[in-house]
């Protein structure tokens, strides 16, 4: 077993360096005082100041967070329903179709989703007179749609491995199926719901292509804003923004990991 372990370990750490060095470079250069991103001219935090003074960008941040919040909520609700249908109802008419509808958005190129949804909205306005205007509302629908697919994958894989006897025990003790689901199943799969929500949230925060298609006047989200600024070349403000995003994501991940580890240790200690 010795040589392969060494080979895959080398590849692993090489891959990790590949994944993390670019992010590290973003962080370092966000503290560069020079406007030319790659020329080092001493430490400075002025780009953070400029970032927070950029009202357009800050407004886009809030818009994006709002859209991501509601998309994630919708995606988790729809994802729970779809997962229950796919994992708990056995065979039913339309099951295979629901499978396809959940699996396809996972791989469908963004340009196709974006274009087709835009054409749908335009046709709807044409025929129904609704939605009158494209904007955050249409972005919410688009993001909730592909978020649902991802949320369903996360939630249904948890539901699938969940021992059925939990629900049966609850019903055996007098709970109706709905009550059993709310009081027993949901709390048990809560970690999966949280990760599904976070996944849908970050996917929404990250999307530039679909949002570009379906957004309308005045509804520029953060990625759209970043994309247009990046196309013009590197900007230290974006580095500062990137550093903040990396910081927040790392902190959330660290806290989540620490909490789960502490729980594991506590249970182990109690048993012994």
């Amino acid at each position: 077993m010795k040589p392969p372990i060494r080979f895959s370990s080398v590849m692993f750490w090489f891959g990790m360096a590949f994944l993390y060095l670019p992010m590290l470079s973003l962080v370092i250069y966000s503290f560069n005082s020079s406007r030319l991103v790659t020329v080092w001219a001493g430490w400075s935090t002025k780009w953070y100041g400029e970032l927070f003074r950029d009202e357009g960008l800050m407004a886009a941040v809030w818009r994006s967070l709002e859209v991501a919040f509601w998309s994630a909520n919708t995606a988790v609700c729809l994802g729970v329903l779809a997962s229950v249908a796919l994992t708990r109802f056995g065979r039913f008419r339309g099951r295979s179709m629901l499978h396809s509808l959940v699996a396809a958005p996972l791989v469908m190129p963004d340009v196709i989703i974006g274009l087709s949804l835009l054409l749908l909205f335009v046709s709807m306005t044409d025929v129904l007179g609704w939605p009158h205007q494209r904007g955050l509302f249409t972005i919410w629908i688009a993001h909730a749609t592909f978020g649902t697919a991802y949320a369903t994958v996360v939630i249904s894989s948890r539901l699938k491995e969940l021992d059925r006897s939990f629900v049966e025990a609850a019903m055996d003790l007098g709970a109706t199926p709905v009550k059993a689901f709310v009081q027993v199943t949901l709390p048990i799969i809560m970690p999966a719901l949280v990760s599904a929500w976070l996944l849908a949230f970050t996917l929404s925060l990250d999307d530039v292509v679909i949002a570009s298609f379906v957004s309308g006047p005045g509804a520029t989200t953060l990625p759209i804003e970043v994309f247009s600024s990046v196309r013009l070349g590197v900007s230290p403000k974006i580095n500062a923004l990137a550093t903040l995003i990396i910081l927040i994501v790392s902190l959330v991940t660290l806290v989540a990991w620490w909490l789960s580890r502490r729980k594991l240790k506590r249970d182990k200690f109690a048993r012994s």
Binding site: M16, L19, L26, V39, T202, V226, I245, I246, T253
Partner: peptide, 29 residues
């Protein structure tokens, strides 16, 4: 668990920004 988190963590940050990082790395200067 830790290694998986390390693999996933970058993809939870912004995809756009991570691509942007390569512009700064790969440019001629």
């Amino acid at each position: 668990t830790v290694l998986l988190l390390l693999i996933l963590l970058p993809s939870w940050t912004s995809f756009l920004i991570r691509i942007y990082a390569w512009i700064g790395i790969l440019k001629s200067n």
